[in-house]
Amino acid sequence: MSLNSKILAVVVVVVLFGGIAVSTTLGWWATESTKTPAAYTEGDFAGQANPADIRGSYTFGDVSRAFDIPAATLAQAFGVTAEEPDTFALKDLETLYVDSPVEIGTASVRLFVACYRGLPYDLATAAETYVPASAAAVINAEGQPTAEQRAWLETHTAPATAPTPATTEGTAAPVETAAPEPVATPGAATEDSATRIKGRTTFGELLDWGVSQAAIEEIIGGPLPDPAMKVKDYATAQGLNFETLKLALQAAVDNQVRP
């Protein structure tokens, strides 16, 4: 049996648009987040919402509804003092914590929710995730973390850094309450934040800070990538632990700043 081009054209268009129509009817077609996290599929928590599926597009209100944690508690944990914390989008946390020595973002909320509710979470995937000290304080005061999660918190609490005032009107304001006692993080807080390696630091910035190409190549064990590439993206692409790489590079930066 032969096909000509006109029939093939019709079949291609019909299969694609027909398939989309059928999947829409069946409820399979979604091009944006439903704001409802996927549920655990097995174990004691099967059927319950899984914090690992929390997305950056969620608001504190979405998280609150899915996990029964008051939005005010989430706002307190992450130092957000917006008038309506319900509408605060998680993706705005990175902007809010722009001066933090470690990245605070959507992944931090996932971990906070898991620890607060004592829900299962693969901590092996959270080696580079940190929660603010204020979130750790809330978990310790009100949460139900497992012993494993409690141990994780001890090494993954960011030093107390007040969030930067948000530039988006009405989304957030600086923390006015006293920050909880800082918890030590390897190599944190004492160095100059202008030359502190963060998730968005590029190799070009390392060169600008005076670290030689040879020194970078020795640390990363390979040729210098595109200077515009973020160190974190490089670590992910190479399957390296970002925190380990960051500490080694930070030491090289500090040697340049304070020889």
């Binding site: 096909l3 291609v12 694609l16 398939g19 999947s23 979604a30 996927a38 549920a39 950056g56």
Partner: peptide, 27 residues
């Protein structure tokens, strides 16, 4: 392995992948 989708990916991508495979098997 976990029933979850990678960040920024939605179920529409899985549907399109399935339709792409169907077309590829045929044509």
């Amino acid at each position: 392995t976990s029933g979850l989708l990678v960040q920024k990916i939605h179920s529409s991508s899985l549907v399109l992948m399935g339709l792409g495979v169907l077309l590829a098997v045929l044509f």
